[in-house]
Simulated scan of single mutants.
Amino acid sequence: MTMNEQEWLACVNHVAGGEYPIPRGMISNYDDWRCRSTVGRALYWMDEIEASMRVLATVLDVEPDMDDAPEMGLSEAEHKVLCLRDVADIVWKLARNEEAALTYLAQAYELSRAYKHSFRSASRGDMFYRRLAILREVGKEDQAVQEAEVMLEMEAGNEGINPYRYFAYKFLAEHQHDAGDDVQATQLYAEAFKYYPVSEAGERDLARAAATEDAAARYKAYSFCSTIQYKPWEKLPPAIIRRDL
């Protein structure tokens, strides 16, 4: 899929003139698909959904260079993963198209798994978690629970920071909370945070959560901690990143 010059310039102008403008020189080259990736995702963030989908659709057939690992900025693999993630979000929220959304998320998940360099922009496990969330919304929670448990089995030998184990436990904690068992839910959340990148401030927040006596309040405290990115998921340089993340 392509866009004509007038359509493209309108999108670039909108992103360059927004509340948080992106310099035009960084995004204006239509022939560079990374520019289209940036513009499309920015439009989505700005709630320009139709325009965002129009731009992101031009990226769907791009094959990223899996050896691209720049010292600054996003790699080609990350650009493609984030585009797939946002397209999945759009088709799910607007069309409630479960099959399409899960297909795009599967592609994003597989690509992020296959990339052997550091991932700077998001958690690779988030692609998996988004799949579970959609399954839950369409009434397939039992399937989602099974998939979370399978992920824990797959990752059983990978200790330390691990986005796949974290998000599997997080989903299972939410499942128990929805079932009315906050005691079990908080135990699962405590296990989840063993695999989460936590700073000193995070350690203090988690200690306060663990010390909260009321189970419902304890769950709420853990849930709040899950909204804070205390430290990056992956450290630099790429040579020290676990290769199977």
Score class of each variant (00 low, 15 high):
217 A>Y: 04
215 A>K: 05
203 E>K: 12
70 P>R: 09
89 D>C: 07
3 M>D: 01
216 A>W: 00
214 D>R: 09
163 P>D: 08
225 C>H: 08
120 R>G: 11
14 H>M: 13
21 P>H: 10
94 L>G: 05
198 V>D: 04
208 R>C: 08
178 D>M: 07
133 A>S: 13
118 S>D: 13
235 K>I: 04
98 E>L: 05
105 L>Y: 15
115 Y>C: 07
177 H>T: 03
84 L>F: 12
30 Y>E: 01
35 C>S: 10
93 K>C: 08
22 I>S: 04
177 H>G: 01
81 V>R: 01
194 K>M: 13
28 S>Y: 03
22 I>Y: 07
101 A>L: 05
168 A>F: 09
66 M>T: 05
57 A>D: 15
202 G>V: 01
70 P>Q: 10
31 D>A: 00
67 D>M: 11
77 A>C: 14
224 F>D: 13
174 E>I: 02
196 Y>C: 05
176 Q>Y: 03
108 A>W: 02
143 Q>M: 11
168 A>W: 09
200 E>G: 09
207 A>R: 14
15 V>F: 11
10 A>L: 04
135 L>K: 11
60 L>N: 07
78 E>P: 09
210 A>G: 08
223 S>T: 07
168 A>T: 06
182 D>Y: 13
2 T>C: 00
68 D>Q: 02
186 T>Q: 12
132 L>H: 00
150 V>W: 08
6 Q>R: 08
158 N>D: 10
50 E>H: 08
123 S>M: 04
70 P>Y: 14
75 S>D: 11
157 G>E: 15
39 V>S: 03
213 E>A: 14
151 M>K: 13
107 Q>K: 15
189 Y>R: 06
143 Q>R: 14
181 D>T: 11
156 A>H: 15
34 R>L: 02
229 Q>R: 08
203 E>H: 10
94 L>R: 15
61 D>K: 10
234 E>Q: 15
210 A>S: 10
24 R>A: 00
201 A>N: 14
8 W>P: 02
101 A>M: 03
145 V>S: 04
172 L>A: 02
229 Q>D: 12
33 W>H: 01
158 N>P: 03
84 L>S: 06
95 A>I: 00
218 R>W: 03
83 C>K: 02
228 I>T: 14
190 A>L: 12
219 Y>L: 10
144 A>G: 02
16 A>N: 06
156 A>S: 13
164 Y>M: 06
243 R>D: 11
196 Y>M: 04
38 T>R: 13
68 D>Y: 08
242 R>L: 06
64 P>R: 07
190 A>W: 10
190 A>E: 12
245 L>H: 11
